[in-house]
Every structure is written in structure tokens, then in C-alpha cells.
């Protein structure tokens, strides 16, 4: 399958996975390409020509002051004023406190979206991340690009 103007195509459709339990009983995780990471953790390699295929764990209990952004490929002016505009950690914490969701996984996940080798991404980062999310026993995941 090909599409004019895009290198990204996928011919197969993954069937919908139904919710296994009500939202209020479900554990939510968050996966972001925003390059958000706890201060003091190894910075993403934002200048590597083919990208950085690692991810960072972000404690779901963290505050925006605990976190920093290592990413050059999107405008961060809004995020530097209010991180929730790209990594809505405080909003997700509120939803858990209010029992809108059953809870949050211990960690959220972040990586950088600049990865120029989709095969390598699929074999490494995607597999590693999927395993980490499954280990956190997440019932559903909110994924957000940056």
C-alpha cells in the first residue's frame, strides 16, 4: 500500500480492544513523545541523526517541577509555561483523585518522536515500551504525540 505525500502507511487494521472493566475501575497509563523526563535522568540524544530509541519512566506522582523536556522538534513555549499542555500529568492525577479512572500506573512513559528508522523503532523502542506498559498492568493507555 502506498500513499502520496506520506512515508507512513499501514494496510492492516487492528481490531478494537474492548474495555475489560469500567473506566472508574481501570488503571490508566500515559505514553508521550514529548521527551519529558525526570530531572537528573539521562537526557535524550536530541541531536543524533537517526534519533534516540530509548524511553524514560516518569513517575505518575511527579510534579511539573520534577520534570524537564529534552526535545528540539516541537515548539515548547507553551509547555515551559504549563507542562500540562503537552504532558498533562496534573490533569491525570486529578482524574485519579476524583475516581474518574481507577488509578494510574506507577510510571508514565516518554520518548522523543524524532526517530528516522521505523523498522528499528518497531523492533526496539516499541517492543520495549509495550512490555513496560504491560508490566505496569495498565488497562488502558492514553498516547499523545508532541
Amino acid at each position: 500500500m502506498s500513499a502520496i505525500g506520506s512515508m507512513i502507511t499501514k494496510s492492516d487494521v487492528v481490531p478494537l480492544a474492548p474495555m475489560r472493566r469500567p473506566l472508574a475501575d481501570s488503571r490508566l497509563t500515559f505514553v508521550s513523545t514529548a521527551g519529558v523526563q525526570p530531572i537528573g535522568t539521562l537526557p535524550f540524544d536530541v541531536v543524533h541523526p537517526v534519533g534516540d530509541y530509548t524511553f524514560r519512566r516518569v513517575p505518575s506522582s511527579a510534579t511539573p517541577a520534577d520534570l524537564e523536556i529534552h526535545q528540539l522538534k516541537y515548539p515548547t513555549d507553551g509547555a515551559h509555561r504549563d507542562l500540562n499542555v503537552i504532558f498533562p500529568i496534573e490533569r491525570l492525577q486529578e482524574l485519579a483523585r476524583e475516581n474518574v479512572v481507577g488509578g494510574l500506573t506507577q510510571d508514565f512513559f516518554s520518548f522523543i518522536g524524532y526517530n528516522m528508522d521505523p523498522d528499528l523503532l518497531e523492533r526496539t523502542l516499541a517492543e520495549d515500551l509495550a512490555r513496560a506498559v504491560a508490566d505496569e498492568q495498565a488497562d488502558l493507555a492514553l498516547l499523545a504525540p508532541a
Binding site: A34, R81, N84, V85, P88, R91, A144, P145, A146
Partner: peptide
């Protein structure tokens, strides 16, 4: 880009 959850401070 960089603002997928809206605008700053708009809770």
C-alpha cells in the same frame, strides 16, 4: 505542535 492538550493554564 507541542500543544496537543490545548493552551497553557486552560484546565
Amino acid at each position: 505542535m507541542g500543544h496537543h492538550f490545548g493552551v497553557p493554564f486552560h484546565v
